[in-house]
Design a binder for these strands. Structure first.
Lengths: 196, 196
DNA sequence: ATAAATGTTTACCGATTGGTACAATAAAGC
DNA sequence: GCTTTATTGTACCAATCGGTAAACATTTAT
């Protein structure tokens, strides 16, 4: 094999950051080439499908990360309470307290949504279902757990939008604190937000 | 004056819909020209500043609509409770139960955020402050009202992201119902979400 | 009627877009 | 040491990008 400056898997996180910063349309091939240090030839060698395949792989990698770091512990962990707490911590770290955008959320609002609709839907659907399962194991009934999980995920996404719009990480941190207390409030005490 | 097929003010809502569908970068001038029925020359006659001016005017118009239909009643209306209820109704209608994207929220996640950062920040900041004032008039203390208002706006934005990602308007409607009850819960009963 | 103001159309600009072709290069296997 | 195979750089492509120029049409004020 010839000289390997970078493997395909090394390039994907760089691509992810580029898409996050510039969006799908805004990330031109020349920009990608210069930021990755790879020529167009190499890029199309690694990703024959072009920009669309690059973005697909990025989405897959993000989904994989969340699957391992967040979803799986929520579903299979011994302690659902601890998994939920860990989710909040992971999410806050991952999104750099709101400074880093959720690429999948951004794609959902973009016109490229249709192109990646399956990946986008799965990402949120699996997250919601995993969180719901953890809540059920805490003692909530299924419907209530579904509602709470939905509200938590949507609050995180909204927090990313609002903290970025106001350029204020405190917005994100306050929202995460609210999400955490909302998720960990037991099934006995109502929280006035999701239910009867 | 020469023949007027469309006034500037007539074009702006069309532009808004184009930007909503395709994003800032995705809305090419030729697309804009064909959708508005105006040639490039006419476009640049109405908007000498080009695409950036078109987007600015769209943002201004959106802000103006919210100012009249939502913010002002929240601040100055006789009945703050009614104004809050009306806000929820207006928002649900405006966003077509989640099928229509919040252009300003989408811009906030996009790389064009820097270009329109002032308009984006003001839109959300004024919304939050107006809603906070209404909550204070209901009887909340200032800090608590600020927190509740922030949570409501962020939930709406997150609901738009999530309902679009899952392609399910029910997500948006459930979220709006939660927002409404959260906003209208009196200052006496805690709601477990924003509380001390 | 005519001049001036106001829109509109069309052709065009250089730059950049995503993508392709292909030769050059470098290492691994024999 | 030669061939094979995987990677890279360069040149190039048609298409489209945002934007400009200027001739052209239409209407109002005089």
């Amino acid at each position: 094999m010839p000289k390997i400056i970078a493997e395909r898997s090394d390039v994907i996180p760089v691509l992810a950051e580029i898409f996050r910063e510039y969006g799908y349309e805004g990330a031109s091939l020349s920009l990608i080439a210069s930021r990755t240090g790879l020529g167009k030839g190499s890029l199309y060698h690694f990703f024959p499908g072009g920009k669309e395949e690059m973005a697909s792989e990025v989405l897959r990698e993000i989904d994989g990360w969340f699957e391992d770091a967040v979803y799986k512990p929520l579903r299979d962990g011994d302690d659902p309470r601890a998994a939920i707490l860990e989710m909040c911590r992971s999410v806050a770290t991952y999104f750099w307290s709101g400074k880093r955008v959720c690429l999948i959320g951004a794609f959902a609002l973009d016109n490229v949504r249709d192109r990646f609709s399956d990946a986008i839907r799965d990402y949120f659907a699996v997250w919601q279902r995993s969180l719901q399962q953890a809540l059920v194991r805490i003692g909530h009934d299924a419907d209530r757990a579904s509602d709470i999980a939905e509200d938590a995920i949507l609050s995180i996404q909204g927090a990313l939008v609002l903290s970025r719009a106001l350029d204020d990480t405190a917005v994100f941190e306050r929202a995460m604190a609210r999400v955490e207390t909302g998720l960990l409030a037991g099934p006995d005490q109502g929280n006035g937000r999701t239910g009867p």
